[in-house]
């Protein structure tokens, strides 16, 4: 079926193209609202700037298809193949993408607000600038959460998104908005989170070892038991961040702001906290073997039973701090 034939049929009221073979069809800027393309073969097609609200693409093959700038709000892509598809600047607000194969697709600046991405495979996809607020990425079954391995999430808006259990290792999440996102147990090893907004995010038990956190904002985030070994977090905002029992071995936290942070029973061995602000921080039983706390501000910090015997405290301010033996420093 060619373009003219399809458009003629659609205009005459025919909307069911289930299982149709439309490979390479050119429907740029076409108006195809509510059309049914389920199980259709539409690879290498061009739907640029088309109006396709509520279109049904269930189980359709859309490999290499171009949807840039298309309006696909509330469209159904359940189990469809969008591998290598171009969705640059498309609008998929409220779209159903459950179980879709979106690997290596281009989702640059795509509107995915309130979309359903459960069990979708987004590995290697480019989601730079995409907005996923209110999107559902929740783990349906064990090992069936949205797969974002190797995805580019630069400036991606994932505010409030649930990414529990997701594999985000080595992902580029720089300047991403992860405010209030749920990232419990997420694999963020070696991820680039520079300048990311993680305020109030839940990262308990997450693995962030080797991650880049420079200029990121983690104020009020929860990182209990998280692994932050060797993270690079110079100048990072960690005010009131909960790092209880977190592992910060060899972490670089030069001039980081840890005011009122909870670091009880955390492992700060060999961490570099030179010039960091730890005013009123809670460091009870913290393990600071060979930690560099020189020129840091520990004013009014709680250091009860903390291991500080080999820590470097040169030039540190300890006024008002409760020392490991329970005495008040003045």
């Amino acid at each position: 079926m060619n373009t003219q034939e399809l458009l003629r049929k659609y205009e005459s009221g025919h909307t069911d193209f289930k299982g149709a073979s439309l490979r390479g069809i050119d429907l740029v800027e076409a108006d195809l609202i509510d059309i049914n393309f389920s199980n259709a073969e539409i690879s290498n097609a061009n739907f640029m700037l088309a109006f396709m609200n509520r279109v049904n693409f269930t189980a359709a093959n859309l490999t290499n298809t171009r949807f840039s700038g298309a309006n696909l709000n509330q469209a159904r892509f359940v189990r469809s193949i969008l591998s290598n598809a171009d969705l640059h600047g498309a609008s998929l607000q409220g779209a159903d993408l459950r179980g879709a194969n979106i690997t290596l697709a281009n989702l640059l600046d795509t509107n995915l607000i309130d979309s359903d991405l459960r069990n979708a495979n987004l590995s290697g996809a480019n989601l730079s600038g995409a907005c996923l607020r209110g999107a559902n990425l929740r783990e349906e079954k064990r090992n069936q959460s949205a797969n974002l391995r190797g995805a580019n999430l630069y400036q991606t808006d994932l505010r409030g998104a649930n990414l529990s259990g997701a594999d985000l290792s080595r992902c580029n999440l720089s300047q991403a908005n992860l405010q209030d996102a749920t990232l419990r147990g997420v694999d963020l090893r070696g991820a680039n989170l520079r300048g990311a907004n993680l305020q109030g995010a839940a990262l308990s038990d997450a693995n962030l070892s080797g991650a880049e956190l420079g200029d990121a904002n983690l104020s009020g985030a929860r990182l209990e038991r998280a692994d932050l070994s060797e993270v690079k977090a110079d100048g990072t905002q960690l005010e009131r961040t909960i790092l209880t029992e977190a592992k910060l071995v060899r972490a670089t936290l030069i001039e980081a702001n840890l005011t009122k942070a909870k670091l009880n029973r955390s492992d700060l061995s060999r961490a570099n906290l030179k010039g960091a602000t730890l005013t009123e921080a809670m460091l009870s039983e913290a393990y600071c073997a060979r930690s560099n706390l020189s020129h840091s501000d520990l004013g009014q910090a709680i250091l009860i039973r903390a291991e500080l015997s080999s820590a470097n405290l040169t030039g540190a301010n300890l006024v008002g701090a409760t020392m490991p033996d329970g005495t008040l420093y003045n």
Binding site: N71, G89, I113, C131
Partner: peptide
Amino acid sequence: SDLRVEIMQYTNPLRAK
């Protein structure tokens, strides 16, 4: 990010770009 949401919801993101 709030600004981008505002734009995406009220116009076509590609045309905006």
